[in-house]
Nucleic acid binder design. Structure first.
Lengths: 206, 206
DNA sequence: CAAATAACTAAACGAGTGTTTAGTTAAATA
DNA sequence: TATTTAACTAAACACTCGTTTAGTTATTTG
């Protein structure tokens, strides 16, 4: 019943199907709470069939995470900006995320589970957390230089608070999908920006 | 090797020892990532010995959670207050939590894991989340009535944001214990309270 | 056409799981 | 003193897990 050997397109499609199924499964119950069998059943092959495409369960998880990261936009980049552009991009990501429950589930559940030092995605989430925090800090540095901040909190603290707010809202949203994540993010910026900053943001929010 | 039969104190102590060990174990790797054997080894008895005291693994988890909830103070109560007292209590809880890593680990990891509908602590965390959100909403209603708010955000939204900030900071703190949770909470209130509210809070922060 | 190989399956492996059963010990009770 | 019972242990049960091995099919390559 083996499929054509050199059919690169078909092989890639099968790999994608496995990654899709794994995302679905890991997102619901995390890594420890899921089995290869659940993934295999969705795809319609055997557990061993999955391990033909992926070395083991742990690397399957890492590839699921990696693929979704590539799909996401480059989180927030520090450039020659007053920071407003980066704020808008982040709010846009929030809006997009609200339409993709599976991805939020995946990252929220796994970032908590991966707190354990021996978790296969532990290093991945440490790096991700550092990267996001650095990006946010850079964003608030830009806003500060543009004199857009209403608070004298440090960019580091503001960055940490925004990461916390995002993570926490996602967790809430899993229990109660009525939580309006983009709205609460905007309200956060409203309390943190001064009149000039808020005006600059509003002008581009439409 | 059986211990005295009617020695109620010794029995209670053994139960406590099991609950302590289970807290330790569940806090590191969650429910799915932990085994009764790990708990049993810490206590120095058999897995079956644990099941003599607790019906099964799931109820053991629920009793661990329940006990720590009782230890915690009554989270925030709506009374005849201007809300400042409740804010102070919450900040005090944050300070206390910063000295109890295990408890934060436990609740952070499990609240994400328990997002899955079939998790033994799913209902527990749903109720807990609703309760905390209601309490925070009540707190911000008091602050609003006292004219202490600098923002026109609704008490519901402010409550949701504070819950999110707390959960998110705890997750960060697990990866990086240098994160100053009480400080960032205070800064949150600083941006949300107006001059009168902030003065009222500062007067009692020492 | 023959050899090599991709894409699997079926089956087994060994380890680990939560839980149950049957027994053991020693103290409390009648 | 005899019986009952709390507090266990040792062993087994019935899985489930991730992973490995050996084999099968069908296609491409030499």
């Amino acid at each position: 019943m083996a499929r054509p050997k050199g059919d690169a397109a078909a092989t890639a499609a099968r790999r994608e199907a496995i990654l899709d199924a794994a995302l679905q499964v890991f997102a619901v119950a995390g890594f420890n709470g899921s089995s290869l069998k659940q993934v295999a059943e969705i795809v319609g092959i055997t557990e061993a069939g999955i391990l033909h495409h992926f070395k083991n369960k742990g690397t399957l998880l890492l590839e699921v995470l990696k693929r979704r990261e590539e799909l996401g936009r480059p989180v927030v980049k520090t450039g020659q900006s007053n920071g407003i552009q980066e704020v808008l991009e982040w709010i846009a990501i929030q809006k997009e995320n609200s339409t993709l429950p599976g991805i939020i589930e995946l990252f929220t559940i796994l970032s908590a589970e991966a707190t354990a030092a021996n978790h296969p995605a532990h290093d991945y989430f440490r790096e991700r957390y550092n990267k996001v925090t650095r990006n946010f800090t850079g964003m608030f540095e830009l806003l500060k230089q543009a004199n857009f901040l209403a608070t004298d909190e440090s960019p580091e603290d503001l960055g940490a608070s925004l990461v916390a707010l995002s993570d926490g809202l996602q967790l809430q949203w899993l229990l109660n999908p009525e939580v309006d994540m983009p709205k609460l993010h905007i309200q956060f910026f409203r309390t943190v920006l001064n009149d000039a900053g808020w005006a600059a943001l509003q002008a581009r929010l439409g």
